[in-house]
Design a protein around this nucleic acid. Structure first.
Length: 431
RNA sequence: GUGGACGUAGCUCAAUUGGUAGAGCUCAGGAUUGUGAUUCCUGCGGUCGAGGGUUCGAUCCCCUUCGUCCACCCCA
Protein backbone atom coordinates (compact mmCIF):
# COMPACT_ATOMS: atom_id res chain seq x y z
CA UNK A 1 0.00 0.00 0.00
CA UNK A 2 1.58 3.23 -1.15
CA UNK A 3 -1.08 5.82 -0.55
CA UNK A 4 -1.78 7.64 2.68
CA UNK A 5 -1.73 5.58 5.81
CA UNK A 6 -1.89 5.81 9.56
CA UNK A 7 1.05 6.87 11.69
CA UNK A 8 3.05 4.06 13.28
CA UNK A 9 1.41 2.81 16.44
CA UNK A 10 -1.84 4.65 15.73
CA UNK A 11 -4.58 2.14 15.11
CA UNK A 12 -7.98 2.39 13.49
CA UNK A 13 -10.83 0.70 15.30
CA UNK A 14 -12.91 -0.93 12.58
CA UNK A 15 -16.66 -1.65 12.48
CA UNK A 16 -16.08 -5.29 13.45
CA UNK A 17 -14.44 -4.11 16.67
CA UNK A 18 -16.54 -1.13 17.71
CA UNK A 19 -19.33 -3.25 19.24
CA UNK A 20 -16.82 -4.69 21.71
CA UNK A 21 -15.61 -1.21 22.54
CA UNK A 22 -19.11 0.15 23.01
CA UNK A 23 -20.03 -2.78 25.22
CA UNK A 24 -16.97 -2.18 27.35
CA UNK A 25 -17.54 1.56 27.56
CA UNK A 26 -21.21 1.16 28.39
CA UNK A 27 -20.60 -1.46 31.06
CA UNK A 28 -17.90 0.58 32.77
CA UNK A 29 -19.86 3.82 32.60
CA UNK A 30 -22.98 2.22 34.08
CA UNK A 31 -21.03 0.63 36.89
CA UNK A 32 -19.17 3.83 37.73
CA UNK A 33 -22.42 5.76 37.79
CA UNK A 34 -23.89 3.20 40.16
CA UNK A 35 -20.91 3.70 42.47
CA UNK A 36 -21.48 7.44 42.43
CA UNK A 37 -18.64 8.45 40.14
CA UNK A 38 -19.19 11.29 37.68
CA UNK A 39 -17.57 11.70 34.29
CA UNK A 40 -15.15 14.53 33.63
CA UNK A 41 -13.67 15.43 30.24
CA UNK A 42 -10.53 17.41 29.66
CA UNK A 43 -8.28 18.26 26.72
CA UNK A 44 -5.90 15.87 25.02
CA UNK A 45 -3.24 18.57 24.96
CA UNK A 46 -1.70 20.18 28.04
CA UNK A 47 1.32 22.28 28.93
CA UNK A 48 4.36 20.01 29.01
CA UNK A 49 5.11 21.33 32.47
CA UNK A 50 2.09 19.52 33.92
CA UNK A 51 3.49 16.09 33.15
CA UNK A 52 7.02 16.92 34.12
CA UNK A 53 5.85 18.04 37.54
CA UNK A 54 3.51 15.12 38.15
CA UNK A 55 4.88 12.00 36.52
CA UNK A 56 8.47 12.86 37.39
CA UNK A 57 11.36 14.28 35.37
CA UNK A 58 13.44 11.13 35.32
CA UNK A 59 10.74 8.62 34.40
CA UNK A 60 10.82 6.92 31.01
CA UNK A 61 7.51 8.50 30.10
CA UNK A 62 8.78 12.04 30.51
CA UNK A 63 12.30 11.42 29.30
CA UNK A 64 11.58 9.67 26.04
CA UNK A 65 7.97 8.78 25.46
CA UNK A 66 6.05 12.03 25.28
CA UNK A 67 4.67 13.62 22.13
CA UNK A 68 5.97 17.08 22.90
CA UNK A 69 6.13 20.01 20.51
CA UNK A 70 5.92 23.77 20.41
CA UNK A 71 2.71 25.48 19.43
CA UNK A 72 2.72 28.51 17.14
CA UNK A 73 3.77 30.79 19.98
CA UNK A 74 6.70 28.63 20.98
CA UNK A 75 4.97 27.21 24.06
CA UNK A 76 5.83 23.60 24.84
CA UNK A 77 2.73 21.40 24.81
CA UNK A 78 2.31 17.64 25.13
CA UNK A 79 -0.25 15.06 24.10
CA UNK A 80 -1.29 13.52 27.40
CA UNK A 81 0.58 10.28 28.20
CA UNK A 82 -1.82 9.52 31.05
CA UNK A 83 -4.90 11.02 32.64
CA UNK A 84 -4.33 11.46 36.34
CA UNK A 85 -2.30 14.65 36.04
CA UNK A 86 -4.87 16.14 33.68
CA UNK A 87 -7.71 15.17 35.95
CA UNK A 88 -6.05 16.76 38.95
CA UNK A 89 -5.34 19.90 36.95
CA UNK A 90 -8.89 20.20 35.69
CA UNK A 91 -10.50 19.44 39.04
CA UNK A 92 -8.20 21.81 40.90
CA UNK A 93 -8.56 24.57 38.33
CA UNK A 94 -12.34 24.56 38.71
CA UNK A 95 -12.46 24.27 42.45
CA UNK A 96 -13.77 20.72 42.51
CA UNK A 97 -11.33 19.70 45.22
CA UNK A 98 -11.89 22.52 47.65
CA UNK A 99 -13.21 21.24 50.98
CA UNK A 100 -15.05 18.39 49.39
CA UNK A 101 -14.94 14.81 48.39
CA UNK A 102 -14.93 14.10 44.69
CA UNK A 103 -15.39 10.85 42.72
CA UNK A 104 -14.49 11.25 39.05
CA UNK A 105 -13.85 9.19 35.95
CA UNK A 106 -12.77 9.86 32.39
CA UNK A 107 -12.11 8.00 29.21
CA UNK A 108 -10.08 8.68 26.12
CA UNK A 109 -6.88 8.40 24.12
CA UNK A 110 -3.40 8.65 25.63
CA UNK A 111 -0.15 9.00 23.70
CA UNK A 112 3.26 7.50 24.33
CA UNK A 113 6.09 7.29 21.83
CA UNK A 114 7.04 3.65 22.38
CA UNK A 115 7.72 0.77 20.04
CA UNK A 116 4.46 -1.04 19.45
CA UNK A 117 3.90 -4.66 20.40
CA UNK A 118 1.02 -6.80 21.55
CA UNK A 119 -1.24 -4.75 23.79
CA UNK A 120 0.82 -1.62 23.29
CA UNK A 121 0.29 1.22 20.86
CA UNK A 122 1.40 4.81 20.59
CA UNK A 123 -2.15 6.01 20.80
CA UNK A 124 -4.06 3.87 23.24
CA UNK A 125 -7.15 4.34 25.35
CA UNK A 126 -7.72 4.37 29.05
CA UNK A 127 -10.62 4.65 31.40
CA UNK A 128 -9.39 6.36 34.54
CA UNK A 129 -11.06 6.68 37.91
CA UNK A 130 -9.96 9.09 40.65
CA UNK A 131 -11.24 9.68 44.16
CA UNK A 132 -10.22 12.86 46.01
CA UNK A 133 -10.41 13.99 49.59
CA UNK A 134 -10.57 10.62 51.35
CA UNK A 135 -7.55 9.33 53.19
CA UNK A 136 -8.71 6.05 54.71
CA UNK A 137 -8.31 2.63 53.12
CA UNK A 138 -12.05 2.40 52.56
CA UNK A 139 -11.85 4.30 49.25
CA UNK A 140 -8.90 2.19 48.15
CA UNK A 141 -11.04 -0.85 48.83
CA UNK A 142 -14.04 0.69 47.09
CA UNK A 143 -12.04 1.21 43.91
CA UNK A 144 -10.72 -2.33 43.95
CA UNK A 145 -14.15 -3.76 44.71
CA UNK A 146 -15.47 -1.80 41.76
CA UNK A 147 -12.89 -3.27 39.42
CA UNK A 148 -13.47 -6.78 40.71
CA UNK A 149 -17.18 -6.37 40.05
CA UNK A 150 -16.42 -5.05 36.59
CA UNK A 151 -14.40 -8.15 35.61
CA UNK A 152 -17.29 -10.23 36.86
CA UNK A 153 -19.76 -8.34 34.72
CA UNK A 154 -17.53 -8.52 31.68
CA UNK A 155 -16.98 -12.23 32.14
CA UNK A 156 -13.19 -11.98 32.29
CA UNK A 157 -12.66 -12.37 36.03
CA UNK A 158 -11.15 -15.82 35.47
CA UNK A 159 -8.31 -14.33 33.46
CA UNK A 160 -7.26 -11.78 36.04
CA UNK A 161 -5.56 -11.73 39.40
CA UNK A 162 -4.99 -8.86 41.77
CA UNK A 163 -1.55 -7.93 43.02
CA UNK A 164 -1.32 -5.57 45.92
CA UNK A 165 1.38 -3.70 47.77
CA UNK A 166 2.06 -0.60 49.76
CA UNK A 167 5.11 1.47 48.96
CA UNK A 168 4.82 3.59 52.08
CA UNK A 169 5.44 7.30 52.26
CA UNK A 170 8.02 9.16 50.19
CA UNK A 171 10.19 9.25 53.34
CA UNK A 172 10.03 5.53 54.07
CA UNK A 173 10.62 4.80 50.43
CA UNK A 174 13.73 6.94 50.42
CA UNK A 175 15.06 5.03 53.43
CA UNK A 176 14.38 1.73 51.74
CA UNK A 177 15.96 2.88 48.51
CA UNK A 178 19.10 3.69 50.46
CA UNK A 179 19.16 0.26 52.08
CA UNK A 180 18.54 -1.50 48.79
CA UNK A 181 21.34 0.43 47.14
CA UNK A 182 23.69 -0.41 50.00
CA UNK A 183 22.91 -4.07 49.49
CA UNK A 184 23.14 -4.11 45.71
CA UNK A 185 26.15 -1.89 45.08
CA UNK A 186 28.73 -4.51 46.17
CA UNK A 187 27.11 -7.05 43.80
CA UNK A 188 26.78 -4.62 40.94
CA UNK A 189 28.58 -6.94 38.49
CA UNK A 190 26.06 -9.72 39.08
CA UNK A 191 23.13 -7.57 37.96
CA UNK A 192 21.82 -7.60 34.42
CA UNK A 193 22.66 -4.60 32.29
CA UNK A 194 19.30 -2.91 32.65
CA UNK A 195 19.36 -3.26 36.40
CA UNK A 196 22.86 -1.82 36.60
CA UNK A 197 21.55 1.23 34.81
CA UNK A 198 18.57 1.37 37.17
CA UNK A 199 20.89 1.58 40.17
CA UNK A 200 21.35 5.23 39.35
CA UNK A 201 17.94 5.98 37.83
CA UNK A 202 15.25 4.02 39.65
CA UNK A 203 16.62 1.35 42.03
CA UNK A 204 13.19 0.15 43.15
CA UNK A 205 12.45 -0.99 39.62
CA UNK A 206 15.24 -3.57 39.93
CA UNK A 207 12.83 -5.48 42.13
CA UNK A 208 10.74 -6.61 39.19
CA UNK A 209 13.61 -7.40 36.86
CA UNK A 210 12.97 -10.50 34.76
CA UNK A 211 16.61 -11.57 34.92
CA UNK A 212 17.10 -14.80 36.88
CA UNK A 213 20.50 -13.91 38.35
CA UNK A 214 19.19 -10.56 39.48
CA UNK A 215 16.19 -12.20 41.10
CA UNK A 216 18.47 -14.70 42.87
CA UNK A 217 20.47 -11.82 44.25
CA UNK A 218 17.29 -10.10 45.40
CA UNK A 219 16.27 -13.11 47.47
CA UNK A 220 18.45 -11.87 50.30
CA UNK A 221 17.89 -8.19 49.75
CA UNK A 222 16.29 -6.06 52.43
CA UNK A 223 12.51 -6.01 52.23
CA UNK A 224 10.48 -2.89 51.75
CA UNK A 225 8.33 -4.24 54.56
CA UNK A 226 11.03 -3.49 57.12
CA UNK A 227 11.29 0.15 56.21
CA UNK A 228 7.66 1.04 56.04
CA UNK A 229 6.17 3.55 58.47
CA UNK A 230 3.57 2.32 60.92
CA UNK A 231 0.77 4.42 59.48
CA UNK A 232 1.26 3.02 56.00
CA UNK A 233 1.24 -0.47 57.45
CA UNK A 234 -1.99 0.22 59.28
CA UNK A 235 -3.53 1.67 56.14
CA UNK A 236 -2.51 -1.42 54.19
CA UNK A 237 -3.85 -3.80 56.82
CA UNK A 238 -7.09 -1.88 56.81
CA UNK A 239 -7.34 -2.28 53.06
CA UNK A 240 -6.58 -6.00 53.20
CA UNK A 241 -9.21 -6.52 55.90
CA UNK A 242 -11.87 -4.78 53.81
CA UNK A 243 -11.01 -6.86 50.76
CA UNK A 244 -11.12 -10.01 52.86
CA UNK A 245 -14.52 -9.04 54.21
CA UNK A 246 -16.06 -8.97 50.72
CA UNK A 247 -14.14 -11.93 49.39
CA UNK A 248 -11.90 -10.20 46.88
CA UNK A 249 -8.80 -12.36 46.47
CA UNK A 250 -5.37 -10.80 46.11
CA UNK A 251 -1.72 -11.61 46.39
CA UNK A 252 0.57 -9.30 48.26
CA UNK A 253 3.57 -8.69 46.05
CA UNK A 254 6.07 -6.64 47.97
CA UNK A 255 8.16 -6.25 44.86
CA UNK A 256 5.36 -4.41 43.13
CA UNK A 257 6.37 -0.81 42.50
CA UNK A 258 4.89 1.58 40.02
CA UNK A 259 6.70 3.65 37.46
CA UNK A 260 5.16 7.01 38.13
CA UNK A 261 6.70 9.15 40.83
CA UNK A 262 3.52 10.36 42.44
CA UNK A 263 2.37 7.11 44.03
CA UNK A 264 2.41 6.57 47.78
CA UNK A 265 1.09 3.81 50.01
CA UNK A 266 -1.38 1.57 48.16
CA UNK A 267 -0.44 0.31 44.71
CA UNK A 268 -2.24 -2.44 42.83
CA UNK A 269 -2.34 -4.15 39.48
CA UNK A 270 -4.77 -6.49 37.81
CA UNK A 271 -2.68 -8.80 35.64
CA UNK A 272 -3.31 -11.60 33.16
CA UNK A 273 -1.21 -14.29 31.51
CA UNK A 274 -3.27 -14.26 28.35
CA UNK A 275 -1.92 -11.15 26.68
CA UNK A 276 1.69 -11.97 25.95
CA UNK A 277 4.26 -9.80 27.64
CA UNK A 278 1.92 -6.95 28.49
CA UNK A 279 0.04 -8.49 31.39
CA UNK A 280 -1.19 -5.41 33.19
CA UNK A 281 -4.76 -4.57 32.33
CA UNK A 282 -5.58 -2.17 35.12
CA UNK A 283 -3.33 -0.47 37.62
CA UNK A 284 -3.31 2.33 40.10
CA UNK A 285 -2.73 3.44 43.60
CA UNK A 286 -2.77 6.23 46.09
CA UNK A 287 -1.14 9.58 45.34
CA UNK A 288 -1.66 11.69 48.41
CA UNK A 289 0.99 14.25 47.53
CA UNK A 290 0.14 15.04 43.94
CA UNK A 291 -2.53 17.69 44.35
CA UNK A 292 -0.31 19.76 46.59
CA UNK A 293 2.63 19.15 44.31
CA UNK A 294 0.64 20.70 41.47
CA UNK A 295 -0.18 23.77 43.52
CA UNK A 296 -3.40 22.81 45.27
CA UNK A 297 -4.20 22.39 48.92
CA UNK A 298 -2.96 19.04 50.27
CA UNK A 299 -5.59 16.49 49.27
CA UNK A 300 -5.47 12.72 49.65
CA UNK A 301 -6.32 10.83 46.47
CA UNK A 302 -6.49 7.35 44.96
CA UNK A 303 -7.08 6.25 41.43
CA UNK A 304 -6.42 3.76 38.71
CA UNK A 305 -6.52 3.41 34.95
CA UNK A 306 -7.42 0.50 32.76
CA UNK A 307 -6.11 -0.13 29.28
CA UNK A 308 -9.00 -0.53 26.92
CA UNK A 309 -7.11 -2.19 24.09
CA UNK A 310 -5.95 -4.86 26.50
CA UNK A 311 -9.42 -5.32 27.91
CA UNK A 312 -10.81 -5.63 24.40
CA UNK A 313 -8.22 -8.29 23.60
CA UNK A 314 -9.30 -10.21 26.67
CA UNK A 315 -12.97 -9.79 25.81
CA UNK A 316 -12.37 -11.04 22.28
CA UNK A 317 -10.85 -14.27 23.56
CA UNK A 318 -13.01 -14.84 26.65
CA UNK A 319 -16.33 -13.36 25.51
CA UNK A 320 -16.35 -13.27 21.72
CA UNK A 321 -20.09 -12.58 21.58
CA UNK A 322 -20.00 -9.70 24.04
CA UNK A 323 -21.58 -6.58 22.71
CA UNK A 324 -22.64 -7.99 19.36
CA UNK A 325 -25.28 -5.63 18.05
CA UNK A 326 -28.50 -6.67 16.33
CA UNK A 327 -28.70 -6.20 12.61
CA UNK A 328 -31.73 -4.44 11.14
CA UNK A 329 -34.69 -6.79 11.36
CA UNK A 330 -36.14 -5.74 8.05
CA UNK A 331 -34.54 -5.31 4.65
CA UNK A 332 -36.54 -3.71 1.89
CA UNK A 333 -35.82 -4.85 -1.65
CA UNK A 334 -36.92 -2.39 -4.29
CA UNK A 335 -36.26 -3.05 -7.96
CA UNK A 336 -37.02 -0.38 -10.46
CA UNK A 337 -37.49 3.34 -10.27
CA UNK A 338 -41.09 3.37 -9.10
CA UNK A 339 -40.41 0.66 -6.53
CA UNK A 340 -37.37 2.49 -5.20
CA UNK A 341 -39.52 5.56 -4.69
CA UNK A 342 -42.32 3.59 -3.02
CA UNK A 343 -39.81 1.67 -0.92
CA UNK A 344 -38.23 4.85 0.31
CA UNK A 345 -41.59 6.17 1.47
CA UNK A 346 -42.51 2.82 3.00
CA UNK A 347 -39.35 2.44 5.13
CA UNK A 348 -39.58 6.02 6.35
CA UNK A 349 -43.16 5.39 7.40
CA UNK A 350 -42.18 2.18 9.17
CA UNK A 351 -39.43 4.09 10.97
CA UNK A 352 -42.04 6.62 12.12
CA UNK A 353 -44.40 3.99 13.41
CA UNK A 354 -41.85 1.47 14.80
CA UNK A 355 -38.92 3.51 16.09
CA UNK A 356 -36.82 0.78 17.74
CA UNK A 357 -37.02 -1.63 14.85
CA UNK A 358 -34.11 -1.73 12.46
CA UNK A 359 -35.13 -1.12 8.87
CA UNK A 360 -32.80 -1.00 5.92
CA UNK A 361 -33.64 -0.08 2.36
CA UNK A 362 -31.67 -1.44 -0.53
CA UNK A 363 -29.87 1.48 -2.13
CA UNK A 364 -27.85 1.45 -5.28
CA UNK A 365 -30.20 -0.68 -7.36
CA UNK A 366 -29.46 -4.18 -8.54
CA UNK A 367 -31.50 -7.13 -9.71
CA UNK A 368 -33.95 -8.91 -7.44
CA UNK A 369 -31.40 -11.64 -7.11
CA UNK A 370 -28.58 -9.41 -5.98
CA UNK A 371 -30.84 -7.39 -3.72
CA UNK A 372 -32.10 -10.54 -2.01
CA UNK A 373 -28.51 -11.61 -1.63
CA UNK A 374 -27.74 -8.37 0.15
CA UNK A 375 -30.86 -8.80 2.25
CA UNK A 376 -29.60 -12.18 3.36
CA UNK A 377 -26.10 -10.95 4.15
CA UNK A 378 -27.46 -8.02 6.09
CA UNK A 379 -28.70 -10.47 8.69
CA UNK A 380 -32.28 -9.23 8.43
CA UNK A 381 -35.09 -11.58 9.41
CA UNK A 382 -37.63 -10.33 6.97
CA UNK A 383 -37.40 -9.07 3.41
CA UNK A 384 -40.01 -6.68 2.07
CA UNK A 385 -40.09 -7.06 -1.68
CA UNK A 386 -41.22 -4.30 -3.98
CA UNK A 387 -41.22 -4.35 -7.79
CA UNK A 388 -43.20 -2.81 -10.60
CA UNK A 389 -46.08 -5.26 -10.09
CA UNK A 390 -46.37 -4.67 -6.35
CA UNK A 391 -46.32 -0.91 -6.79
CA UNK A 392 -48.99 -1.11 -9.46
CA UNK A 393 -51.20 -3.21 -7.16
CA UNK A 394 -50.36 -1.35 -3.96
CA UNK A 395 -49.03 -4.47 -2.24
CA UNK A 396 -45.83 -5.72 -0.69
CA UNK A 397 -44.40 -9.22 -0.84
CA UNK A 398 -43.04 -10.41 2.48
CA UNK A 399 -40.50 -13.15 2.89
CA UNK A 400 -38.97 -14.70 5.98
CA UNK A 401 -35.22 -14.98 5.53
CA UNK A 402 -34.67 -16.75 8.83
CA UNK A 403 -36.63 -18.48 11.58
CA UNK A 404 -38.40 -20.69 9.04
CA UNK A 405 -37.57 -23.70 11.17
CA UNK A 406 -38.87 -21.94 14.25
CA UNK A 407 -42.45 -22.35 13.11
CA UNK A 408 -42.38 -19.48 10.67
CA UNK A 409 -44.23 -19.86 7.45
CA UNK A 410 -41.89 -20.63 4.59
CA UNK A 411 -42.33 -19.02 1.23
CA UNK A 412 -43.79 -15.57 0.98
CA UNK A 413 -47.03 -13.76 1.32
CA UNK A 414 -48.57 -10.68 -0.17
CA UNK A 415 -50.10 -7.90 1.88
CA UNK A 416 -51.63 -4.55 0.99
CA UNK A 417 -49.08 -1.79 1.52
CA UNK A 418 -51.31 -0.26 4.19
CA UNK A 419 -51.33 -3.44 6.29
CA UNK A 420 -47.59 -4.00 6.38
CA UNK A 421 -46.88 -2.09 9.56
CA UNK A 422 -49.59 -3.82 11.59
CA UNK A 423 -48.45 -7.23 10.37
CA UNK A 424 -44.80 -6.49 11.18
CA UNK A 425 -45.70 -5.27 14.65
CA UNK A 426 -47.57 -8.46 15.42
CA UNK A 427 -44.81 -10.66 14.04
CA UNK A 428 -41.85 -8.89 15.60
CA UNK A 429 -43.42 -8.57 19.02
CA UNK A 430 -42.54 -12.09 20.07
CA UNK A 431 -39.13 -12.27 18.42
C1' G B 1 16.43 3.22 21.73
C1' U B 2 17.72 -2.47 20.85
C1' G B 3 16.87 -7.50 18.79
C1' G B 4 14.24 -11.38 15.78
C1' A B 5 10.54 -12.68 12.08
C1' C B 6 7.73 -10.92 8.12
C1' G B 7 5.67 -7.40 3.91
C1' U B 8 2.64 -10.96 -3.06
C1' A B 9 -5.20 -9.24 -5.14
C1' G B 10 -9.98 -5.82 -0.51
C1' C B 11 -8.98 -10.40 3.17
C1' U B 12 -6.23 -15.34 4.16
C1' C B 13 -2.20 -17.40 1.70
C1' A B 14 0.69 -20.11 -2.57
C1' A B 15 4.56 -20.04 -6.52
C1' U B 16 8.95 -18.73 -9.39
C1' U B 17 17.22 -22.39 -8.48
C1' G B 18 16.38 -14.55 -11.89
C1' G B 19 12.30 -14.96 -17.81
C1' U B 20 6.72 -9.32 -15.34
C1' A B 21 2.41 -14.31 -10.72
C1' G B 22 -1.97 -18.27 -8.77
C1' A B 23 -5.91 -20.21 -5.33
C1' G B 24 -9.76 -19.67 -1.63
C1' C B 25 -12.99 -15.99 0.41
C1' U B 26 -15.29 -11.27 -0.97
C1' C B 27 -17.56 -8.51 -5.00
C1' A B 28 -20.20 -8.34 -10.07
C1' G B 29 -22.77 -11.26 -13.83
C1' G B 30 -24.93 -15.88 -15.47
C1' A B 31 -27.12 -21.17 -15.15
C1' U B 32 -32.74 -19.97 -12.83
C1' U B 33 -35.46 -13.69 -18.61
C1' G B 34 -38.83 -11.01 -10.55
C1' U B 35 -36.52 -13.99 -5.44
C1' G B 36 -31.22 -15.02 -0.55
C1' A B 37 -27.96 -18.90 2.40
C1' U B 38 -26.10 -24.75 -1.28
C1' U B 39 -24.00 -26.04 -6.23
C1' C B 40 -21.75 -24.96 -11.08
C1' C B 41 -19.75 -21.40 -14.79
C1' U B 42 -17.72 -16.56 -16.08
C1' G B 43 -15.69 -11.96 -14.85
C1' C B 44 -13.45 -7.62 -12.04
C1' G B 45 -9.24 -7.27 -9.14
C1' G B 46 -1.67 -7.05 -8.38
C1' U B 47 3.82 -0.81 -10.53
C1' C B 48 4.93 -8.79 -5.88
C1' G B 49 5.80 -2.38 0.67
C1' A B 50 9.02 1.90 -1.32
C1' G B 51 13.81 3.71 -3.42
C1' G B 52 18.46 2.45 -5.46
C1' G B 53 22.15 -1.29 -7.30
C1' U B 54 23.79 -5.89 -10.10
C1' U B 55 21.82 -8.10 -14.77
C1' C B 56 20.00 -8.63 -21.57
C1' G B 57 16.06 -9.19 -17.91
C1' A B 58 14.67 -8.55 -10.64
C1' U B 59 8.74 -10.25 -7.12
C1' C B 60 13.28 -13.48 -6.43
C1' C B 61 20.20 -11.53 -5.52
C1' C B 62 22.65 -6.96 -2.87
C1' C B 63 22.08 -2.12 -0.24
C1' U B 64 18.92 1.47 1.94
C1' U B 65 14.29 2.80 3.78
C1' C B 66 9.24 2.44 5.57
C1' G B 67 5.70 -0.55 7.84
C1' U B 68 3.60 -4.85 10.54
C1' C B 69 4.13 -8.59 14.28
C1' C B 70 6.74 -10.45 18.55
C1' A B 71 10.27 -9.59 22.41
C1' C B 72 13.68 -6.29 25.49
C1' C B 73 13.18 -1.55 27.96
C1' C B 74 8.91 0.62 30.07
C1' C B 75 3.93 0.78 30.91
C1' A B 76 -2.42 0.56 30.67
Amino acid sequence: MTGVRAIKGMHDILPDQTPTWRYLERTVADLLTAYGYREIRFPVLEFTELFKRSIGEVTDIVEKEMYTFEDRHGVSVTLRPEGTACCVRAAEEHGLLFNQVQRLWYMGPMFRYENPQKGRQRQFHQIGVEAFGMEGPDVDAELIALTARLWQQLGIAGALRLELNTIGTPESRAAYRKALLAYLEPHKDKLDADSQRRLSTNPLRILDSKDAATQALLANAPSMRDYRDAESDAHFQGLCALLDSIGVAYVVNDKLVRGLDYYSRTVFEWVTDELGAQGTVCAGGRYDGLVEQLGGRATPAVGFAMGMERLCLLLETRQPQAGSEPMPAIYCVAAGEAAQKAGFALVEQLRNLMPGVGVQLNCGGGSFKSQLKRADRSGARIALILGEDEVAQGVVNIKWLRDVDAGRQAGQQTLPMTDVQAWLSSQLADL
